[in-house]
Design a protein around this nucleic acid. Structure first.
Lengths: 192, 192
DNA sequence: GTCTATATCAAGATAGAC
DNA sequence: GTCTATCTTGATATAGAC
């Protein structure tokens, strides 16, 4: 039931905008009364915290699975993300965009509520930093991947299959070349 | 006067959150009455459109100046952005973050209102695409730069001087190496 | 052009019946 | 656990004085 109500909340936030994310609208969308909804989420902070937490868990699950699926070795997390997020534009669904509306709702309601999302990102970057690639390469590539994601979520840039293919190819090229270069010994690059 | 009121609106949105961006609060912050404020911005859409438009113009001005300052040649826009945005963490002020709160306010109020920002990004990417770098390299680097920006704005990742330095060094390294590699002729890379 | 006063309405939250 | 009914607050917007 909780999940059903969170689905409804995401739908409302995505379709009508976070400004219209009200108990009335969510209850109507879920097909229950406002009282019924308020039994599960006592106030709006709780509702939005529930939304963010679920979104963060979904993201965590996604990048963890992507990591597990990728072949071991340097750049595993980055390769996993490229494979898991950048191969099929049909994955970038309204449903996915909707799931991120919780973060904006949190930002509007009470910025402290995005904490679960921040923790998910901390976890992602722990995997990224242990990626076995030179310097900040894995971080840079991951940040580019996420930049694309934010463009799409904020509707600032069009993201279609062509754009994803292009970006994936470019990032893979960078990964390959820069990882290779690092193998060539050069003076002054060893860490003390 | 309009600018003064927009300043006040940004302050409120940044300090109290977009949920508390109300005519009452903005008027109080600006030191005028609600009636006085409403004389300049008839309704909330107009107020937020004004905020977004100003933010977009600031961003446009910033990347245009960064472009002009950078030395001509391939990667000019990317080099300009790295120089203009990634050298000094003290530039990443609360004031700057505040200016972007307009975009979230727009997202909450009426997503169509972010249009001026989208146009600024179109213009940026026209410069990026004509950057004289191979393939999607300039786009990838710009997206990484913006990814960092979004992390900071959304408070999803810590951004300090060390992180900026690290990222700038990495992106500059990629730029240098990948642009060099492109100069070496290799079979099958010519566009028909 | 700026103010006060106020109409109108919607949202968050509570109480209590079933 | 879900409902209806209701309270309270606060926000947008308008009207009209100065």
């Amino acid at each position: 039931m909780r999940d059903l109500l969170l689905d409804a909340a995401e739908s409302v936030a995505a379709k009508e905008g976070i400004g219209r994310l009200t108990f009335d609208a969510v209850a109507a969308e879920a097909g229950v009364s406002k009282g019924g909804l308020l039994h599960h989420f006592t106030n709006k902070d709780q509702l939005i915290e529930g939304m963010v937490r679920r979104t963060a868990e979904g993201w965590r699950k996604h990048f963890t699975e992507s990591y597990d699926k990728a072949a071991p070795g340097p750049g595993r997390m980055v390769r996993g993300l490229l494979q898991g997020c950048f191969t099929d534009a049909e994955q970038w669904t309204e449903e996915l965009r909707r799931s991120f509306s919780s973060v904006f709702a949190a930002l509007a309601q009470n910025p402290a509520l995005i904490e679960p999302m921040r923790e998910a990102y901390n976890e992602l970057y722990r995997l990224v930093e242990d990626d076995g690639l030179p310097d900040g390469l894995a971080e840079a590539l991951t940040t580019a991947i996420d930049g694309m994601w934010f463009y799409w979520v904020l509707r600032l840039r069009p993201v279609d299959q062509r754009a994803l293919d292009r970006m994936r190819t470019t990032l893979e090229g960078i990964l390959e070349r820069m990882a290779d270069i690092a193998k060539e010994p050069s003076p002054g690059t060893t860490n003390p």
